[in-house]
């Protein structure tokens, strides 16, 4: 059975080398949200091997 990880998600943005918090495989997961007050974006640290979450969107 195929198991998707964060690395395959369109919202997965690797932390660039040289950043203070750089670690191999570490990334920012950036989600766009919208409610009655407007759009906002959330960013949290994830790793490429992390299991996909409900907001997973496969890269094409």
């Amino acid at each position: 059975m195929e198991t998707n990880t964060c690395k395959q998600c369109t919202q997965f943005f690797p932390v660039p080398e040289g950043a203070d918090d750089y670690q191999a495989g570490k990334a920012d997961c950036v989600l766009e949200k919208e409610d009655e007050k407007g759009k906002y974006w959330l960013s949290k640290p994830v790793y490429e091997s992390s299991q996909k979450c409900e907001a997973f969107r496969m890269k094409h």
């Binding site: 943005f13 203070d20 918090d21 920012d28 950036v30 766009e32 974006w41």
Partner: peptide, 18 residues
């Protein structure tokens, strides 16, 4: 400092991708 720079990255990612 690292937290503020994460914020910088978020702004850049949104500018370039959203």
């Amino acid at each position: 400092i690292s937290w503020a720079r994460r914020q910088a990255r978020l702004c850049k990612i949104v500018a370039e991708n959203f």
